[in-house]
């Protein structure tokens, strides 16, 4: 099924986030050897949460192709919501550029809620607070640098 006006692109927005839910327990965790070799940590603080329930589910990408073409994230996580914020942390990242796609799984069912035509209905957000434009923002709009050592970014999600 395809949908009129903006739906086809928004559907693409929903899919990688849903895929994050499906793959939440597998390939994301770094192997110990990778963790030792890399030198960066990344803390992502989600703010502005309006409904203090459920979890934030997120995918982290490290290249344009995977980010823009529905490819696999390098890391995924699901972190609980505490009040109006949530915190996700990653260790063992190689310094470089990254981008994040996230949604607030308000009802805690592990997937993006949609209407019958597949439109996302739970809050979602992207790194740099990049705006959706009929689909997720492009890598160029969402990418941010991660340097060796500790890094922190904030994402408004509401």
């Amino acid at each position: 099924m395809t949908f009129r006006l903006v739906t086809p692109l928004l559907l693409a927005a929903a899919l990688p986030l849903g895929g994050c839910a499906i793959s939440i327990n597998d390939p994301g965790a770094p192997s110990p050897s990778v963790a030792r070799a890399a030198a960066a940590t990344l803390a992502i603080r989600f703010e502005g949460i309006e409904t203090p329930t459920g979890q934030i589910m997120l995918s982290v990408f490290d290249n344009a192709a995977a980010h823009d073409q529905n490819g696999a994230p390098i890391r995924v996580a699901a972190v609980p919501v505490a009040g109006t914020s949530a915190l996700a942390s990653f260790e063992g990242l190689a310094p470089g550029d990254y981008a994040v796609k996230a949604f607030h799984d308000v009802d805690g069912d592990g997937k993006m809620g949609t209407n019958p035509f597949g439109m996302p209905l739970e809050p979602y957000a992207f790194s740099n607070d990049a705006k959706a434009q009929g689909g997720p923002p492009r890598w160029e709009a969402a990418r941010f640098p991660v340097a060796a050592g500790a890094n922190t970014i904030r994402i408004n999600i509401k």
């Binding site: 006006l5 903006v6 692109l9 928004l10 439109m119 996302p120 979602y124 705006k131 959706a132 434009q133």
Partner: peptide, 20 residues
């Protein structure tokens, strides 16, 4: 904002149909 016959232009924000 995009519409029936108008393309999206730089600055558009489209989280769902009601944004357009």
């Amino acid at each position: 904002q995009p519409g029936f016959g108008t393309p999206a232009r730089p600055g558009s924000e489209l989280g769902g149909p009601d944004d357009a």
